[in-house]
Design a protein around this nucleic acid. Structure first.
Lengths: 154, 154
DNA sequence: TATTGTTATACTCTATAACTATA
DNA sequence: TATAGTTATAGAGTATAACAATA
């Protein structure tokens, strides 16, 4: 006894087996959040990846590109232009690492700190808005479930 | 009293505030699942988007490109080459819709049905593997939570 | 006028291979 | 030899604008 499809804007369109796939819902939910993230940070020029870098540099001052990229799942080759973008904008300071002259030591500039704080404030509001239908226990449970899937990376 | 970071491969790298952001974990988990999806369907030439289209056409025989794209969050312009790819490979049948001569009516060919079944089988195993640390209740709860976030699309 | 499908185009993200300079 | 950063390049995914045919 499948319940009749509720009359929606598009007449009777089912997504079929997709509806039971975690991967499909991850993709869609991630896209919804990503789009709203962009709107929330509109005018800052900061995108999801860039905020990730600011966050990891803030948490690990002096970290180098490779380690930051590894922690974020970004390939070294792709880190180059991202780090350039942030240093060119004056948000990151980059200097040759004392212990390893091949590496760059990254820190947030004061402009970077300010940008980080502004973004974090907006992101907090953005997440609260999108997660408004979840209790705080559900929100924590969601993060826990997602982390357990992330751990399956290979 | 923050607990000391467990000694991991990379020495003491924290992702900072990212760890409390649903959006970050959605991105990472979605990437992990997407990568494993690719490996699972290796050799079929079917990617996540393409499987989505096969699934919706199977569930809604005769649907047109626009409606399928709308249900999947794919722009009409981007549907064109995706549908071409599937029809060129003989997986989809496309014919001018009787009721609206502007539109194409899409159905799975028998090769498309076979491909869908094969993919669904592999995807089932892939999801079971990735979700092996979640109970079935947790897996259902996860899909429910993600659906509630998807509903926030605008 | 609005909608279906189309073309052209561009930007972001991601992936690989080959190079340099240091270790 | 291995690693840090770099360059070049390619393929996906996604976004917009403008057009023809049909509604």
């Amino acid at each position: 006894m499948a319940s009749a499809a509720t009359a929606s804007a598009e007449h009777e369109v089912s997504i079929g087996n997709l509806d039971r796939l975690v991967g499909y819902h991850l993709r869609r939910a991630s896209a919804v959040v990503g789009n709203d993230f962009s709107r929330a940070l509109d005018g800052t020029g900061i995108r999801q990846v860039l905020f990730g870098i600011l966050s990891i540099v803030k948490a690990n001052p002096g970290i180098n590109q490779g380690a930051a990229g590894r922690a974020l799942g970004i390939k070294r080759a792709n880190m180059v232009s991202l780090i350039n973008e942030l240093t060119d904008r004056g948000l990151l300071d980059r200097k040759i690492a004392a212990e390893d002259r091949r590496a760059f030591s990254l820190t947030l500039s004061s402009a970077g700190e300010a940008m980080f704080d502004e973004c974090l404030k907006r992101i907090g509001a953005h997440e609260d808005r999108l997660m408004s239908d979840l209790s705080s226990a559900e929100r924590a449970a969601l993060i826990d479930l997602l982390s357990r899937i992330e751990a399956k990376e290979r």
